[in-house]
Design a protein around this nucleic acid. Structure first.
Lengths: 328, 328
DNA sequence: TCTTTGCGGCCACTTCCTGACCTCAATCCG
DNA sequence: CGGATTGAGGTCAGGAAGTGGCCGCAAAGA
């Protein structure tokens, strides 16, 4: 603790917390003379972290924004908040940030003390917001374990429940984690099969890093995202939704988030979505409040009619017991 | 750059990135002898950051999780991802983390270089997820400016558009930022009126820190959240929704997020929400797919009927032009 | 078994850190 | 305007600490 480096870190930490610190107080906290404090501040400035100083009564030091990101010195709550925020972003709350968020999350998680990790894991699954249960539930712990294994180039064992067939244990060299649509895929070299495989993260459970490290192999084709895309084209979704909507494309785009594609078709637009569950498109259409026509699939028509009837039924004025009680 | 402190930070940074570093390479990068590197690693360990070392061929150093959060050394992308994630969490994506997230966000934002801040601000408004336009649009830049002013104890000017009356400029000493329900409120001492006031953040625009610092006053009653709550009770929402739902309380609770309260009423439950817009409760009811009865308000019945009819209308099979084209 | 790679003691040399003292400069207050 | 407060920074001497080179040792893996 008597170290200079340690003191500099503490100083940085102090400067990151409150905001204006009188020199005397800083010197006191760091247990050095004011002269040395001034030198420390100078050192920080030389390192590229601009420290602002105000003179006169109620003067003090303050860390400002500089050219580089200074080392963030976080307390527990802040670290947890950051991890939680990243996890949400990774789960798709912010379009386009899934991958970067997972990378940053892996870094943060890896450095976090176990007790904080537990606090974060306590908020178990993070569902992508929006679908209200329509999206696949994503176990954030699984996701971060995978990300850490990719980063650390560590072999991985997990149970995998394929679309068809029985669950089985796998042993792989994990390479990349790729978000496509609202899902995450793990690209890995399957050690038992001796070939590249992609795994849907939500079908994967109890991943465990084995501790064995490996040298990354060449990824076929170079671009993993593209490779995955080409593989996934073959996999069908349950419903291909196509709806003509009488609303500006922009409005529809906002409502569907990035769950579907919107095609301008003045004065309205065509909305296409690939989903396994019809609840989400129904909700979007209901909220839009615009006229629309279903092109496909027929099942969506049924679903909409049923939802519509349910809404109307519930809106009936009825002073007696609710219908679901009467029928019971 | 020839400094020990700087080198330690660089070492920490390196150890935070890849994962396993051969000692020779680290020594090379830091431009010191291997012996000194070993000493640096020791120093890190003494500071409480556990560095794992593996011997033998393909050995190396690796930073592990320790008792404390080590200084996070982030690159640009990671910093942006963190800020974006925090912003989303602050906007209410994760229940219960709004306040902590905003605090952490203020800290991060304050330290971020302007170019990164611009990248973050480019993703303008973050709407609370869920309502799909139903919640108030929150300008994240405004929110962080307020948080920074609170933290830095700097006076603030902004334009405020009250619920009733004309917009006017305000000059305040900002004290706390409090999330209540889905909204943010700023507690501040109004300098012109010489009294405590609360401001709804989404009614507030172009905030600017004046640079003048102030000494925080005593907050009346001590607990700001409570004080605000008592103030807000008086303010009515437009609709008080109450619906009996034939579904387990737990399921309903998941669907409404924290927009309303759910009261067990076996075999179903009663859902209460206070909203300004009926779209959100309608959506929840539609997605639930359970039978329900509206208790109040009457407007919700109309709204549901109209939505239901719209859904049914759109589900009609019709090979020709869509209805909204025929009528045009 | 042999090689690779980290561990850490020892030593001499050099660097830089520290606290004390001083003068100066900006800011705020009355 | 003058005095008080608070930061800036030069200089100096003593001492603490960092450094590289050397060594033998201990794991881990082929």
């Amino acid at each position: 603790m008597a170290n200079t480096s340690a003191r500099m870190l503490r100083l940085l930490s102090l400067l990151q917390t409150h905001r204006y610190w009188p020199g005397a107080e800083l010197a006191d906290r760091l247990e050095v003379s004011p002269r040395t404090l001034r030198r420390d501040v100078d050192r920080l400035r030389e390192l590229g972290y601009p420290v602002d100083a105000a003179r006169g009564v109620a003067g003090g030091y303050q860390l400002q924004a500089g050219a580089a990101v200074p080392p963030l010195l976080l307390d527990d709550d802040e670290a947890v908040a950051i991890a939680v925020g990243l996890r949400t972003a990774a789960a798709g709350a912010v379009t386009g940030f899934e991958e970067t968020s997972v990378r940053a999350l892996a870094k943060v998680i890896q450095l976090l003390p176990p007790r904080l990790r537990r606090r974060i894991d306590a908020l178990r699954a993070v569902t992508a917001p929006g679908p209200l249960g329509g999206g696949p539930a994503l176990d954030a712990t699984v996701l971060t374990t995978l990300a850490m294994a990719c980063r650390g180039e560590e072999r991985l064992r997990f149970d995998y429940h394929p679309r068809e067939g029985d669950p089985a244990s796998r042993h792989v060299e994990p390479h990349r984690l790729v978000p496509i649509g609202r899902r995450w895929y793990l690209m890995a070299w399957d050690l038992e099969r001796g070939d590249w495989r992609s795994f849907r993260v939500d079908r994967l459970s109890s991943p465990a890093m084995t501790g064995a490290r490996f040298r990354p192999r060449e990824i076929p084709g170079g671009d993993p995202a593209q490779w995955l895309h080409s593989r996934l084209k073959a996999i069908p979704t349950r419903y291909e939704v196509s709806v003509l909507v009488d609303a500006p494309a922009e409005q529809v785009r906002t409502a569907v988030w990035n769950y579907g594609t919107v095609e301008e078709l003045p004065p309205g637009c065509r909305l296409r979505m690939n989903v396994d569950d019809l609840g989400w498109p129904a909700m979007v259409l209901g909220v839009l409040g615009a006229a629309f026509t279903v092109e496909s699939p027929p099942e969506l028509r049924d679903h909409l009619r049923r939802t519509g009837e349910a809404l109307i039924a519930g809106s009936v004025v009825d002073g007696s017991a609710p219908p679901w009680r009467r029928s019971a």
